[in-house]
């Protein structure tokens, strides 16, 4: 017999949304902001960066500072745009180092009531449609996952 436990809709008053700076992600961010405003929650915008692994013997050294600065810009831009479009809600950004899906799930499980993420919205295989990050989040999250397609309107 499965134990029935109710999911609390709101415990932490935070909606978390992942972004990579793409158009699909900004759709998800604005949907997340809508969700936060109807719930009276804060919005936390998360972006993760990581150093691509070029394998053994690679002579290439990633310019870590540049990557991190660019990543911080992704967060700042998303936060600014959202604050402007949704003046009624508290918006915060968070930059994390590591694999995007893994980091997002960690933050979401700890700090949020729901995690919002964009999907690519095309392709016949779910993995392709979702993208690897949203697929990871969908399968590993312990909190509700709101998937927003690029063409979704609200």
């Amino acid at each position: 017999m499965t134990e029935i436990k109710n999911l609390d809709i709101q415990q932490k008053n935070v909606v978390v949304v992942g972004t990579d700076g793409s158009d699909a992600a900004s759709r998800a961010v604005s949907y997340g902001a809508t969700e936060a405003s109807v719930r009276g929650s804060k919005l936390l915008i998360v972006h993760s960066w990581f150093i691509p692994n070029f394998g053994y013997g690679s002579a290439y050294v990633a310019p870590i500072n540049e990557i991190e600065i660019a990543a911080q810009e992704v967060v700042d831009k998303a936060v600014e745009a959202t604050k402007e479009a949704f003046p009624g809600i508290e918006v915060k950004g968070k930059l994390l180092e590591g694999t995007p899906g893994v980091r997002l799930v960690e933050v979401a499980d700890k700090e949020a009531d729901i995690v919002v993420i964009g999907t690519r919205g095309h392709g016949s295989f779910t993995s392709l449609l979702l993208g690897s990050v949203s697929a990871y989040v969908l399968h590993h999250s312990n909190i509700p996952v709101l998937l927003v397609r690029p063409e979704a309107s609200h």
């Binding site: 436990k5 609390d8 949907y31 909190i143 709101l146 998937l147 979704a152």
Partner: peptide
Amino acid sequence: KTPVVVLPPRP
């Protein structure tokens, strides 16, 4: 086409 919320199997 509508946004979908997927709930986890258990809290």
